[in-house]
Computed example of a mutant assay.
Amino acid sequence: MKSHQIIFTQNLPIPLSAAWDFFSSPANLAEITPNDMEFIVTSAGSEGKMYPGMIITYKVSPLFGVHLNWMTEITQVEPEKYFIDEQRFGPFKFWHHQHHFKTIDGGVEMTDILTYGLPLGFLGGIAHSITVKNKIKQIFIFREKKVVELFGLYKEK
């Protein structure tokens, strides 16, 4: 299986505690996901804070209007530093998503490290080249714009 990795960094003009509170709450995931994905958190208890072992379920339509069930587990949490989610059931063969946070002058730096693989071998590779890679990039671009809309634009001091 071929794996792929995307690293995305964004600076936010808010305190670390505010960034952590927002991004560590599964209830906020839909707000930073493109509307066309029809992303809905379906698990009970998603209003609370993440913890290791937490299972989060979703309904999502990532491509061509096809609706899928997706399940991830929060495997590691270090409050106000990082959390990791891993797919347990869903569209990917492998999904490991690290979310890192650190204080910087005037705000917080948020870094995502997403490592993933697709099923179907050769066909998965073709799908990645044609659609999946671009769709994932579009999701992060949407999120970047939405986060600026929610929290403002970071300006270096």
Rank of each mutant, 00 (worst) to 15 (best):
M1A: 14
M1N: 10
M1R: 11
S3I: 08
H4I: 01
H4T: 00
Q5T: 15
Q5L: 07
I6Y: 03
I7M: 07
I7W: 02
F8P: 00
F8E: 07
F8S: 05
T9D: 07
T9G: 05
N11P: 00
N11T: 08
P13T: 08
P15A: 14
S17G: 07
W20F: 10
W20E: 06
D21H: 14
F22Q: 04
P26H: 06
P26E: 05
N28K: 14
N28T: 15
N28W: 05
N28A: 09
L29V: 11
I32C: 04
D36Y: 15
D36M: 10
V41E: 01
A44M: 10
S46V: 01
E47A: 14
E47D: 15
E47T: 12
K49H: 08
K49I: 06
M54T: 03
I55Y: 02
I56L: 13
T57K: 12
K59W: 02
F64R: 06
G65H: 04
H67R: 15
H67Q: 12
H67A: 14
L68Q: 13
M71R: 13
M71Q: 15
T72Q: 06
E73T: 07
E73W: 04
T75F: 03
Q76A: 12
E78W: 03
E80H: 08
I84H: 02
D85F: 08
D85A: 09
R88L: 14
F89Y: 13
G90P: 05
F92R: 01
F92D: 01
K93R: 13
F94L: 11
F94W: 09
F94S: 07
H96R: 12
H97M: 11
H97Y: 09
H97P: 05
H100T: 06
K102G: 02
K102M: 09
T103N: 11
I104M: 08
I104C: 05
G107L: 07
V108R: 00
T111L: 03
D112N: 10
I113D: 08
I113K: 13
L114H: 10
L114S: 04
T115Y: 01
T115I: 14
Y116I: 03
G117C: 04
L118E: 00
L123P: 00
H128A: 03
H128W: 04
S129G: 15
S129I: 03
S129M: 13
I130C: 10
V132C: 00
V132H: 00
N134E: 08
I136D: 01
K137T: 12
Q138M: 13
F140H: 08
I141R: 14
I141L: 14
K145F: 09
K145T: 11
K146P: 04
V147E: 06
E149Q: 15
L150S: 10
L150R: 13
Y154S: 05
K155H: 14
K157H: 13
K157G: 11
